[in-house]
């Protein structure tokens, strides 16, 4: 129940972040929104693991945190230099 409430709170905050991601006047607002969406994904996966009583989902959440930044890095490199190579 506790984990369910926490997951509900995280999902509602994900909806609020999504508003900024879609409305955001500049592309940087969108990028920041999607980045925090990734962080919420990590927490949600951990919480889902506890809701379904499979706490080893926590490892998967850790790996998610590791691959979360790839898109952001590529995006920033494109904005800085105009190309990726």
């Amino acid at each position: 129940m506790m984990f369910g409430l926490a997951a509900l709170a995280i999902v509602i905050s994900a909806v609020m972040v999504l508003y900024r991601g879609i409305k955001g006047p500049r592309v940087y607002d969108r990028l920041l929104a999607i980045n925090s969406m990734g962080t919420k994904t990590v927490i949600l996966i951990a919480l889902i693991g506890y809701i379904y009583e499979r706490p080893h989902f926590l490892d998967i959440a850790l790996v998610y945190a590791l691959i979360n930044f790839i898109g952001t890095i590529a995006f920033l490199k494109y904005r800085e230099t105009g190309r990726l190579d």
């Binding site: 991601g21 969108r30 969406m37 898109g71």
Partner: peptide, 9 residues
């Protein structure tokens, strides 16, 4: 570019 970012979400 924004559409790409939203697709990431």
């Amino acid at each position: 570019l924004s559409a790409t970012v939203v697709l990431g979400a």
